[in-house]
């Protein structure tokens, strides 16, 4: 049965010019063309998008949440990467 199931696609939509594509959900389709048409019908019935990306779900590689602590930890103690780390005298403008 699962052999006959249409592949799963992840759908990304640009809601308006100038914004980036954002993941909105997934759907089944036989090929990319059908995936885009289905995405139009499922995810943009009320002008939610001006551009659609689809990618077969099996091609998405993701980080592992179990590794989160070790994976993101190196950024934790580098507060000097943020502008608020530095004090600027009140009399200095435009900084």
């Amino acid at each position: 049965m699962s052999q006959k199931e249409w592949p799963l696609w992840e759908v990304f939509i640009r809601s308006k010019q100038g914004l980036d594509h954002k993941h909105v959900g997934s759907l089944h389709a036989a090929d990319a063309e059908m995936a885009i048409q289905n995405a139009r019908d499922v995810y943009t019935r009320r002008l939610e998008g001006v551009s659609i990306w689809v990618v077969e779900s099996k091609h998405v590689h993701a980080s592992n949440p179990d590794d989160s602590a070790a994976f993101y930890e190196p950024a934790n103690d580098k507060i000097y990467r943020h502008p608020t780390f530095y004090t600027v005298p009140d009399s200095i403008k435009h900084m």
């Binding site: 049965m1 699962s2 006959k4 199931e5 997934s26 759907l27 019908d41 499922v42 019935r45």
Partner: peptide
């Protein structure tokens, strides 16, 4: 027609949410 089409859409949003838990659409 628009309302019934929305309901089909709602079903599809939800099936895809269930699939993220490992359920298969056909099943």
């Amino acid at each position: 027609l628009a309302k019934v089409q929305d309901e089909a859409g709602h079903g599809l949003y939800l099936y895809s949410a269930a699939e993220t838990l490992g359920a298969s659409r056909d099943q």
